[in-house]
Design a protein around this nucleic acid. Structure first.
Length: 424
RNA sequence: GGGGAGGUCGCAUAGUGGCCUAGUGCGCGGCACUGGAAAUGCCGUAGGGCGUAACCCGUCCUCGUGGGUUCAAAUCCCACCCUCCCCGCCA
Protein backbone atom coordinates (compact mmCIF):
# COMPACT_ATOMS: atom_id res chain seq x y z
CA UNK A 1 0.00 0.00 0.00
CA UNK A 2 1.07 3.56 -0.61
CA UNK A 3 2.30 5.96 2.06
CA UNK A 4 -0.54 8.29 3.04
CA UNK A 5 2.03 10.92 3.95
CA UNK A 6 3.47 10.88 0.45
CA UNK A 7 -0.02 11.29 -0.95
CA UNK A 8 -0.76 14.12 1.48
CA UNK A 9 2.49 15.96 0.86
CA UNK A 10 2.90 15.41 -2.88
CA UNK A 11 -0.57 14.80 -4.26
CA UNK A 12 0.24 16.13 -7.72
CA UNK A 13 3.24 13.84 -8.08
CA UNK A 14 1.18 10.83 -7.00
CA UNK A 15 -1.64 11.71 -9.37
CA UNK A 16 0.74 12.18 -12.28
CA UNK A 17 2.49 8.87 -11.57
CA UNK A 18 -0.76 6.97 -11.27
CA UNK A 19 -2.17 8.64 -14.37
CA UNK A 20 0.54 6.83 -16.35
CA UNK A 21 -1.13 3.55 -15.40
CA UNK A 22 -4.63 4.84 -16.10
CA UNK A 23 -5.73 5.59 -12.54
CA UNK A 24 -8.10 8.56 -12.34
CA UNK A 25 -6.97 11.46 -10.11
CA UNK A 26 -10.27 11.75 -8.25
CA UNK A 27 -9.36 8.60 -6.30
CA UNK A 28 -6.57 10.61 -4.72
CA UNK A 29 -8.85 13.52 -3.93
CA UNK A 30 -11.31 11.22 -2.17
CA UNK A 31 -8.49 9.75 -0.15
CA UNK A 32 -7.24 13.17 0.87
CA UNK A 33 -10.70 14.17 2.03
CA UNK A 34 -10.84 11.11 4.30
CA UNK A 35 -7.39 11.94 5.59
CA UNK A 36 -8.30 15.55 6.36
CA UNK A 37 -11.48 14.47 8.11
CA UNK A 38 -9.67 11.82 10.12
CA UNK A 39 -7.03 14.19 11.38
CA UNK A 40 -9.57 16.83 12.28
CA UNK A 41 -11.54 14.33 14.38
CA UNK A 42 -8.38 13.01 16.01
CA UNK A 43 -7.30 16.45 17.13
CA UNK A 44 -10.70 17.00 18.66
CA UNK A 45 -11.07 13.69 20.45
CA UNK A 46 -7.52 13.61 21.77
CA UNK A 47 -7.96 16.93 23.49
CA UNK A 48 -11.06 15.56 25.21
CA UNK A 49 -9.27 12.38 26.21
CA UNK A 50 -6.41 14.34 27.72
CA UNK A 51 -8.92 16.20 29.87
CA UNK A 52 -10.60 13.00 30.95
CA UNK A 53 -7.29 11.37 31.86
CA UNK A 54 -6.28 14.31 34.02
CA UNK A 55 -9.62 14.67 35.77
CA UNK A 56 -9.98 10.95 36.37
CA UNK A 57 -6.73 10.98 38.26
CA UNK A 58 -7.90 13.87 40.36
CA UNK A 59 -11.15 12.07 41.15
CA UNK A 60 -9.17 9.19 42.61
CA UNK A 61 -7.64 11.54 45.15
CA UNK A 62 -10.68 13.62 46.02
CA UNK A 63 -12.04 13.43 49.53
CA UNK A 64 -15.14 15.59 49.26
CA UNK A 65 -18.00 13.41 48.08
CA UNK A 66 -20.09 16.19 46.55
CA UNK A 67 -17.23 17.58 44.47
CA UNK A 68 -16.34 14.10 43.47
CA UNK A 69 -19.82 13.23 42.25
CA UNK A 70 -20.00 16.46 40.30
CA UNK A 71 -16.76 15.68 38.49
CA UNK A 72 -17.82 12.12 37.79
CA UNK A 73 -21.05 13.41 36.25
CA UNK A 74 -19.07 15.80 34.06
CA UNK A 75 -16.77 13.05 32.93
CA UNK A 76 -19.70 10.84 32.14
CA UNK A 77 -20.98 13.42 29.67
CA UNK A 78 -17.51 13.90 28.27
CA UNK A 79 -17.16 10.16 27.86
CA UNK A 80 -20.28 10.04 25.70
CA UNK A 81 -18.87 12.69 23.41
CA UNK A 82 -15.58 10.83 23.19
CA UNK A 83 -17.35 7.60 22.26
CA UNK A 84 -19.33 9.35 19.56
CA UNK A 85 -16.25 10.90 17.97
CA UNK A 86 -14.29 7.67 18.31
CA UNK A 87 -16.96 5.93 16.28
CA UNK A 88 -16.65 8.58 13.58
CA UNK A 89 -12.88 8.18 13.55
CA UNK A 90 -13.16 4.42 13.17
CA UNK A 91 -15.55 4.86 10.27
CA UNK A 92 -13.39 7.36 8.43
CA UNK A 93 -10.27 5.30 9.06
CA UNK A 94 -11.95 2.26 7.62
CA UNK A 95 -12.97 4.17 4.51
CA UNK A 96 -9.51 5.62 4.10
CA UNK A 97 -7.87 2.23 4.54
CA UNK A 98 -10.18 0.65 2.00
CA UNK A 99 -9.45 3.41 -0.51
CA UNK A 100 -5.73 3.09 0.12
CA UNK A 101 -5.80 -0.65 -0.43
CA UNK A 102 -7.46 -0.17 -3.81
CA UNK A 103 -4.57 1.95 -5.04
CA UNK A 104 -1.80 0.33 -7.06
CA UNK A 105 1.87 1.14 -6.69
CA UNK A 106 3.52 4.04 -8.53
CA UNK A 107 5.57 3.16 -11.60
CA UNK A 108 9.26 4.04 -11.54
CA UNK A 109 10.04 7.09 -13.74
CA UNK A 110 12.14 4.96 -16.12
CA UNK A 111 9.30 2.54 -16.88
CA UNK A 112 8.30 2.98 -20.52
CA UNK A 113 4.83 4.33 -21.14
CA UNK A 114 2.31 2.24 -23.01
CA UNK A 115 -1.27 1.06 -22.77
CA UNK A 116 -0.69 -2.69 -22.98
CA UNK A 117 1.78 -5.54 -23.39
CA UNK A 118 2.39 -4.62 -27.04
CA UNK A 119 4.41 -1.70 -25.72
CA UNK A 120 6.81 -3.66 -23.53
CA UNK A 121 10.40 -3.09 -24.58
CA UNK A 122 12.83 -5.88 -25.39
CA UNK A 123 16.08 -4.81 -23.76
CA UNK A 124 18.22 -7.92 -24.23
CA UNK A 125 18.28 -11.18 -26.10
CA UNK A 126 20.72 -14.05 -25.84
CA UNK A 127 21.01 -17.08 -28.08
CA UNK A 128 19.61 -17.58 -31.54
CA UNK A 129 16.57 -19.75 -32.16
CA UNK A 130 17.73 -23.12 -33.37
CA UNK A 131 17.13 -24.00 -37.02
CA UNK A 132 15.45 -27.33 -37.55
CA UNK A 133 15.80 -29.66 -40.53
CA UNK A 134 12.36 -30.95 -39.67
CA UNK A 135 9.11 -29.41 -38.52
CA UNK A 136 9.42 -28.84 -34.73
CA UNK A 137 6.45 -30.14 -32.79
CA UNK A 138 4.61 -28.46 -29.94
CA UNK A 139 5.21 -29.96 -26.50
CA UNK A 140 1.76 -31.47 -26.19
CA UNK A 141 2.45 -33.69 -29.18
CA UNK A 142 5.91 -34.57 -27.94
CA UNK A 143 4.71 -35.19 -24.42
CA UNK A 144 1.83 -37.42 -25.47
CA UNK A 145 3.95 -39.41 -27.92
CA UNK A 146 6.65 -39.98 -25.30
CA UNK A 147 3.99 -40.76 -22.68
CA UNK A 148 5.42 -38.24 -20.23
CA UNK A 149 2.37 -35.95 -20.10
CA UNK A 150 -1.13 -37.40 -19.63
CA UNK A 151 -3.74 -34.75 -20.29
CA UNK A 152 -6.79 -37.01 -20.27
CA UNK A 153 -6.13 -38.45 -16.85
CA UNK A 154 -5.40 -35.01 -15.44
CA UNK A 155 -8.87 -33.99 -16.53
CA UNK A 156 -10.28 -37.19 -15.09
CA UNK A 157 -8.83 -36.33 -11.69
CA UNK A 158 -9.41 -32.60 -11.44
CA UNK A 159 -11.04 -31.18 -14.55
CA UNK A 160 -9.80 -28.99 -17.34
CA UNK A 161 -6.43 -27.28 -17.03
CA UNK A 162 -4.97 -30.13 -15.02
CA UNK A 163 -2.53 -32.75 -16.25
CA UNK A 164 -0.41 -35.62 -14.99
CA UNK A 165 3.33 -35.87 -15.56
CA UNK A 166 4.67 -39.38 -15.91
CA UNK A 167 7.97 -41.17 -15.82
CA UNK A 168 10.82 -39.10 -17.21
CA UNK A 169 8.46 -36.11 -17.50
CA UNK A 170 7.75 -36.10 -13.78
CA UNK A 171 11.40 -36.64 -13.11
CA UNK A 172 12.43 -33.80 -15.40
CA UNK A 173 10.31 -31.38 -13.42
CA UNK A 174 11.70 -32.67 -10.14
CA UNK A 175 15.21 -32.34 -11.53
CA UNK A 176 14.56 -28.76 -12.56
CA UNK A 177 13.30 -27.84 -9.12
CA UNK A 178 16.33 -29.33 -7.44
CA UNK A 179 18.73 -27.80 -9.94
CA UNK A 180 17.19 -24.35 -9.63
CA UNK A 181 17.24 -24.41 -5.84
CA UNK A 182 20.89 -25.43 -5.91
CA UNK A 183 21.70 -22.71 -8.41
CA UNK A 184 19.93 -20.01 -6.43
CA UNK A 185 21.64 -21.25 -3.30
CA UNK A 186 24.97 -20.63 -5.03
CA UNK A 187 23.72 -17.20 -6.08
CA UNK A 188 23.23 -16.32 -2.42
CA UNK A 189 19.58 -17.15 -1.78
CA UNK A 190 18.68 -19.08 1.34
CA UNK A 191 16.35 -21.98 0.62
CA UNK A 192 13.10 -22.06 2.59
CA UNK A 193 10.26 -24.57 2.60
CA UNK A 194 7.01 -22.92 3.63
CA UNK A 195 3.39 -23.93 4.15
CA UNK A 196 1.37 -24.05 0.93
CA UNK A 197 -1.74 -22.77 2.69
CA UNK A 198 -1.80 -19.52 4.64
CA UNK A 199 -4.15 -17.37 6.69
CA UNK A 200 -6.19 -14.65 5.04
CA UNK A 201 -4.03 -12.00 6.67
CA UNK A 202 -1.05 -13.19 4.63
CA UNK A 203 -3.00 -12.60 1.43
CA UNK A 204 -3.66 -9.01 2.43
CA UNK A 205 -0.03 -8.54 3.37
CA UNK A 206 1.22 -9.80 0.03
CA UNK A 207 -1.41 -7.59 -1.59
CA UNK A 208 -3.23 -10.49 -3.23
CA UNK A 209 -6.35 -9.22 -1.50
CA UNK A 210 -8.56 -7.43 -2.19
CA UNK A 211 -7.65 -7.27 -5.88
CA UNK A 212 -7.24 -10.96 -6.71
CA UNK A 213 -9.89 -12.54 -4.51
CA UNK A 214 -11.50 -14.34 -7.44
CA UNK A 215 -8.21 -16.00 -8.35
CA UNK A 216 -7.59 -17.63 -5.00
CA UNK A 217 -8.61 -21.05 -3.75
CA UNK A 218 -9.59 -21.31 -0.12
CA UNK A 219 -10.81 -23.80 2.40
CA UNK A 220 -14.46 -23.52 3.37
CA UNK A 221 -14.06 -24.61 6.98
CA UNK A 222 -10.80 -23.07 8.08
CA UNK A 223 -9.13 -19.75 7.46
CA UNK A 224 -6.65 -21.27 5.02
CA UNK A 225 -5.89 -20.07 1.52
CA UNK A 226 -3.85 -21.93 -1.09
CA UNK A 227 -0.82 -19.96 -2.14
CA UNK A 228 -0.90 -18.54 -5.69
CA UNK A 229 2.88 -18.04 -5.49
CA UNK A 230 5.65 -18.54 -2.94
CA UNK A 231 5.82 -14.77 -2.79
CA UNK A 232 2.88 -14.89 -0.35
CA UNK A 233 4.39 -17.04 2.42
CA UNK A 234 7.89 -15.64 1.94
CA UNK A 235 6.72 -12.02 2.20
CA UNK A 236 4.97 -12.89 5.43
CA UNK A 237 7.98 -14.65 6.95
CA UNK A 238 9.10 -11.38 8.44
CA UNK A 239 5.75 -9.73 9.07
CA UNK A 240 5.88 -7.33 12.04
CA UNK A 241 9.65 -7.69 12.32
CA UNK A 242 12.40 -5.09 12.47
CA UNK A 243 15.73 -6.01 10.88
CA UNK A 244 19.02 -4.81 12.28
CA UNK A 245 21.12 -2.93 9.74
CA UNK A 246 23.55 -5.77 9.10
CA UNK A 247 20.78 -8.28 8.40
CA UNK A 248 20.01 -6.77 5.01
CA UNK A 249 19.92 -7.60 2.21
CA UNK A 250 18.29 -10.93 2.89
CA UNK A 251 17.57 -13.25 -0.02
CA UNK A 252 15.40 -16.34 -0.09
CA UNK A 253 14.47 -18.94 -2.64
CA UNK A 254 11.52 -21.25 -2.25
CA UNK A 255 9.85 -24.00 -4.17
CA UNK A 256 6.07 -24.21 -3.95
CA UNK A 257 3.19 -25.33 -6.06
CA UNK A 258 1.03 -22.39 -7.09
CA UNK A 259 -2.76 -22.53 -7.18
CA UNK A 260 -4.78 -20.14 -9.29
CA UNK A 261 -8.50 -20.21 -9.69
CA UNK A 262 -8.54 -17.71 -12.50
CA UNK A 263 -11.25 -18.28 -15.03
CA UNK A 264 -9.30 -18.70 -18.19
CA UNK A 265 -10.54 -17.62 -21.54
CA UNK A 266 -11.59 -20.64 -23.51
CA UNK A 267 -9.73 -19.80 -26.69
CA UNK A 268 -6.38 -18.91 -25.20
CA UNK A 269 -3.49 -21.16 -24.20
CA UNK A 270 -5.86 -24.09 -24.05
CA UNK A 271 -3.40 -26.66 -25.28
CA UNK A 272 -0.59 -28.13 -23.29
CA UNK A 273 0.74 -27.24 -19.88
CA UNK A 274 1.35 -23.53 -20.38
CA UNK A 275 -1.50 -22.32 -18.20
CA UNK A 276 -3.06 -24.42 -15.47
CA UNK A 277 -4.78 -24.06 -12.11
CA UNK A 278 -1.83 -25.74 -10.45
CA UNK A 279 1.77 -25.27 -11.41
CA UNK A 280 5.14 -25.42 -9.71
CA UNK A 281 7.56 -22.58 -9.36
CA UNK A 282 10.85 -21.76 -7.75
CA UNK A 283 10.77 -18.21 -6.46
CA UNK A 284 13.47 -15.71 -5.56
CA UNK A 285 12.73 -13.04 -2.97
CA UNK A 286 14.71 -10.24 -1.34
CA UNK A 287 14.31 -7.92 1.62
CA UNK A 288 16.62 -4.95 1.05
CA UNK A 289 17.44 -1.40 2.09
CA UNK A 290 15.50 1.14 0.03
CA UNK A 291 18.59 2.71 -1.48
CA UNK A 292 19.74 -0.67 -2.78
CA UNK A 293 16.52 -2.00 -4.23
CA UNK A 294 17.04 -1.06 -7.87
CA UNK A 295 20.60 -2.42 -7.92
CA UNK A 296 19.20 -5.61 -6.33
CA UNK A 297 16.53 -5.78 -9.02
CA UNK A 298 19.24 -5.81 -11.69
CA UNK A 299 21.01 -8.57 -9.80
CA UNK A 300 17.86 -10.62 -9.54
CA UNK A 301 17.21 -10.18 -13.24
CA UNK A 302 20.72 -11.42 -13.92
CA UNK A 303 20.19 -14.41 -11.62
CA UNK A 304 17.06 -15.33 -13.56
CA UNK A 305 18.87 -14.76 -16.85
CA UNK A 306 21.67 -17.03 -15.71
CA UNK A 307 19.14 -19.76 -15.04
CA UNK A 308 17.87 -19.47 -18.62
CA UNK A 309 21.40 -19.25 -19.98
CA UNK A 310 22.53 -22.43 -18.24
CA UNK A 311 19.65 -24.32 -19.84
CA UNK A 312 21.07 -23.40 -23.25
CA UNK A 313 17.79 -21.99 -24.53
CA UNK A 314 17.45 -18.62 -26.31
CA UNK A 315 15.83 -16.04 -24.10
CA UNK A 316 15.03 -12.37 -24.06
CA UNK A 317 14.36 -9.76 -21.42
CA UNK A 318 11.54 -7.26 -21.56
CA UNK A 319 10.97 -4.11 -19.56
CA UNK A 320 7.25 -3.95 -18.88
CA UNK A 321 5.48 -0.74 -19.83
CA UNK A 322 3.13 1.12 -17.50
CA UNK A 323 0.06 -0.57 -18.94
CA UNK A 324 1.36 -4.09 -18.26
CA UNK A 325 2.97 -3.46 -14.89
CA UNK A 326 1.59 -5.53 -12.02
CA UNK A 327 -0.53 -3.97 -9.27
CA UNK A 328 2.22 -3.95 -6.63
CA UNK A 329 5.21 -3.38 -8.86
CA UNK A 330 7.14 -0.21 -9.58
CA UNK A 331 9.32 -1.86 -12.20
CA UNK A 332 9.27 -5.30 -13.75
CA UNK A 333 11.43 -7.32 -16.11
CA UNK A 334 9.95 -10.35 -17.80
CA UNK A 335 12.18 -13.14 -19.04
CA UNK A 336 10.98 -15.23 -21.94
CA UNK A 337 12.27 -18.53 -23.27
CA UNK A 338 11.91 -19.36 -26.93
CA UNK A 339 9.51 -22.20 -27.73
CA UNK A 340 9.97 -23.31 -31.35
CA UNK A 341 7.13 -25.83 -31.36
CA UNK A 342 4.54 -23.23 -30.41
CA UNK A 343 6.53 -20.56 -32.20
CA UNK A 344 6.36 -18.09 -29.35
CA UNK A 345 8.29 -16.55 -26.50
CA UNK A 346 7.17 -17.94 -23.16
CA UNK A 347 7.19 -15.83 -20.02
CA UNK A 348 9.04 -17.91 -17.44
CA UNK A 349 10.08 -15.23 -15.01
CA UNK A 350 8.89 -11.88 -13.82
CA UNK A 351 11.28 -9.89 -11.63
CA UNK A 352 9.76 -6.96 -9.79
CA UNK A 353 10.66 -4.31 -7.31
CA UNK A 354 7.63 -3.46 -5.21
CA UNK A 355 9.58 -1.00 -3.05
CA UNK A 356 7.76 -0.60 0.29
CA UNK A 357 4.32 -1.55 -1.06
CA UNK A 358 4.23 -4.97 0.60
CA UNK A 359 6.47 -4.00 3.51
CA UNK A 360 4.01 -1.31 4.55
CA UNK A 361 1.10 -3.75 4.42
CA UNK A 362 3.06 -6.38 6.38
CA UNK A 363 4.88 -3.98 8.69
CA UNK A 364 8.37 -5.16 7.80
CA UNK A 365 11.01 -2.62 8.78
CA UNK A 366 14.69 -2.19 9.46
CA UNK A 367 16.78 0.12 11.56
CA UNK A 368 19.10 2.20 9.37
CA UNK A 369 21.43 2.52 12.37
CA UNK A 370 21.46 1.49 16.02
CA UNK A 371 18.91 3.55 17.88
CA UNK A 372 17.43 5.05 14.72
CA UNK A 373 13.73 4.98 13.91
CA UNK A 374 12.66 1.93 11.94
CA UNK A 375 11.91 2.37 8.24
CA UNK A 376 10.11 0.12 5.81
CA UNK A 377 12.28 -2.23 3.77
CA UNK A 378 11.92 -2.71 0.05
CA UNK A 379 11.00 -6.14 -1.24
CA UNK A 380 11.63 -7.78 -4.58
CA UNK A 381 10.34 -10.95 -6.10
CA UNK A 382 11.20 -12.94 -9.16
CA UNK A 383 10.43 -16.34 -10.56
CA UNK A 384 13.39 -18.54 -10.93
CA UNK A 385 11.65 -20.05 -12.94
CA UNK A 386 8.09 -21.18 -13.60
CA UNK A 387 8.32 -24.93 -14.14
CA UNK A 388 5.72 -25.89 -16.76
CA UNK A 389 6.89 -23.27 -19.24
CA UNK A 390 10.50 -24.15 -18.64
CA UNK A 391 9.54 -27.76 -19.34
CA UNK A 392 7.86 -26.66 -22.57
CA UNK A 393 10.95 -24.77 -23.67
CA UNK A 394 13.22 -27.72 -22.93
CA UNK A 395 11.01 -30.20 -24.73
CA UNK A 396 10.56 -28.05 -27.81
CA UNK A 397 14.15 -26.81 -28.10
CA UNK A 398 15.81 -30.13 -27.40
CA UNK A 399 13.51 -32.28 -29.54
CA UNK A 400 15.05 -34.51 -32.18
CA UNK A 401 13.75 -35.72 -35.52
CA UNK A 402 12.86 -39.11 -34.02
CA UNK A 403 10.65 -37.49 -31.37
CA UNK A 404 13.11 -37.93 -28.54
CA UNK A 405 14.20 -35.11 -26.23
CA UNK A 406 17.83 -34.55 -25.30
CA UNK A 407 18.40 -33.63 -21.67
CA UNK A 408 20.30 -30.34 -21.22
CA UNK A 409 23.78 -30.90 -19.82
CA UNK A 410 23.08 -28.99 -16.62
CA UNK A 411 20.21 -31.32 -15.71
CA UNK A 412 21.80 -34.68 -16.43
CA UNK A 413 23.31 -35.10 -12.96
CA UNK A 414 19.81 -34.56 -11.59
CA UNK A 415 18.35 -37.15 -13.98
CA UNK A 416 20.62 -39.98 -12.96
CA UNK A 417 22.82 -39.33 -15.98
CA UNK A 418 19.97 -39.74 -18.45
CA UNK A 419 20.93 -38.19 -21.79
CA UNK A 420 17.61 -38.31 -23.61
CA UNK A 421 13.96 -39.15 -23.18
CA UNK A 422 13.11 -41.66 -25.88
CA UNK A 423 9.86 -43.28 -26.99
CA UNK A 424 9.08 -46.32 -24.84
C1' G B 1 -12.09 -34.14 19.20
C1' G B 2 -11.96 -33.97 25.12
C1' G B 3 -9.50 -31.81 29.55
C1' G B 4 -6.00 -28.28 31.77
C1' A B 5 -2.44 -24.05 32.01
C1' G B 6 -0.93 -19.68 29.97
C1' G B 7 -0.12 -14.96 26.53
C1' U B 8 2.87 -8.09 30.23
C1' C B 9 9.09 -3.98 27.28
C1' G B 10 14.51 -7.97 22.97
C1' C B 11 14.38 -12.37 26.90
C1' A B 12 12.70 -13.81 31.95
C1' U B 13 9.39 -12.24 35.49
C1' A B 14 6.24 -8.68 39.14
C1' G B 15 1.74 -6.41 38.90
C1' U B 16 -6.13 -8.70 40.85
C1' G B 17 -9.76 -0.97 39.59
C1' G B 18 -6.75 5.13 40.94
C1' C B 19 0.45 5.48 44.45
C1' C B 20 1.27 1.87 36.81
C1' U B 21 4.14 7.90 34.24
C1' A B 22 4.03 -0.71 33.87
C1' G B 23 8.56 -2.41 38.66
C1' U B 24 12.80 -5.87 38.85
C1' G B 25 16.66 -9.07 36.65
C1' C B 26 19.19 -10.31 32.16
C1' G B 27 20.58 -8.51 27.45
C1' C B 28 21.90 -4.10 24.64
C1' G B 29 24.02 1.18 24.17
C1' G B 30 26.68 5.28 26.54
C1' C B 31 29.61 7.22 30.52
C1' A B 32 32.76 6.61 34.95
C1' C B 33 36.57 3.70 37.29
C1' U B 34 41.23 0.86 34.63
C1' G B 35 47.65 0.54 31.60
C1' G B 36 43.79 -2.52 29.23
C1' A B 37 39.90 -5.63 30.66
C1' A B 38 36.68 -8.15 34.17
C1' A B 39 33.87 -6.77 38.19
C1' U B 40 31.29 -2.48 39.92
C1' G B 41 28.57 2.14 39.67
C1' C B 42 25.61 5.83 37.02
C1' C B 43 22.49 7.02 32.83
C1' G B 44 19.64 5.31 28.83
C1' U B 45 17.09 1.52 26.36
C1' A B 46 9.25 -0.59 22.47
C1' G B 47 6.11 0.80 18.48
C1' G B 48 2.50 3.80 16.17
C1' G B 49 -0.99 8.13 15.34
C1' C B 50 -1.95 13.47 15.84
C1' G B 51 0.15 18.36 16.60
C1' U B 52 2.19 22.67 9.19
C1' A B 53 6.72 18.36 12.84
C1' A B 54 13.25 15.38 10.58
C1' C B 55 15.23 16.24 15.99
C1' C B 56 13.28 18.12 20.61
C1' C B 57 8.69 18.81 22.99
C1' G B 58 3.30 17.96 23.91
C1' U B 59 -0.69 14.69 23.48
C1' C B 60 -3.42 10.17 22.25
C1' C B 61 -3.26 4.79 21.49
C1' U B 62 -1.07 -0.17 22.18
C1' C B 63 0.03 -5.28 28.41
C1' G B 64 -2.47 -11.57 22.40
C1' U B 65 -7.00 -9.35 19.27
C1' G B 66 -11.83 -7.16 19.23
C1' G B 67 -16.00 -5.58 22.03
C1' G B 68 -18.20 -4.19 26.93
C1' U B 69 -18.60 -2.21 32.26
C1' U B 70 -16.47 2.34 34.78
C1' C B 71 -15.20 9.16 36.02
C1' A B 72 -10.89 5.71 35.60
C1' A B 73 -9.02 -1.13 33.12
C1' A B 74 -2.70 -4.85 32.38
C1' U B 75 -6.34 -5.62 36.46
C1' C B 76 -13.58 -6.82 36.03
C1' C B 77 -17.12 -9.09 31.99
C1' C B 78 -17.96 -11.30 26.86
C1' A B 79 -16.18 -13.24 22.25
C1' C B 80 -12.19 -14.69 19.39
C1' C B 81 -6.89 -15.85 18.22
C1' C B 82 -2.36 -18.09 19.56
C1' U B 83 1.14 -21.12 22.59
C1' C B 84 2.21 -25.12 25.94
C1' C B 85 0.81 -29.79 28.72
C1' C B 86 -2.31 -34.38 29.23
C1' C B 87 -5.85 -37.87 26.80
C1' G B 88 -7.89 -39.70 22.13
C1' C B 89 -6.99 -40.28 16.82
C1' C B 90 -3.12 -40.49 13.25
C1' A B 91 1.50 -40.75 8.43
Amino acid sequence: MLDIRLIREQPEFVKASLARTGVAPDQIDTLLEYDEQRRKLLREVETLKATRNTVSKEIGKMANAADRDARIAEMRTLGDRISAIDREVAMVEQQQQAALLELRNLPHPDVPDGPDEEHNVVIAQEGEPRTFDFEPKPHWELGTALDIIDFDRGVKLSGSRFYVLKGAGARLQRALIQWMLDLHGAQGYEEVYTPFVVKEQCMWGARQLPKFRDNLYRDVEDDLWLVPTAEVPVTNLHRDEIFDPEQLPRSYCAYTPCFRREKMSAGRDVRGIKRGHQFDKVEMYKFVRPEESYAELERMREDAADTCRKLGIPFRVKALCTGDLGFASTRTYDLELWAPGQNEWLEVSSCSNVESFQARATNIRYRPAIGARPEFVHTLNGSGLGLPRTMIAIMENYQQADGSITIPDALRPYMGGLEAIRPR
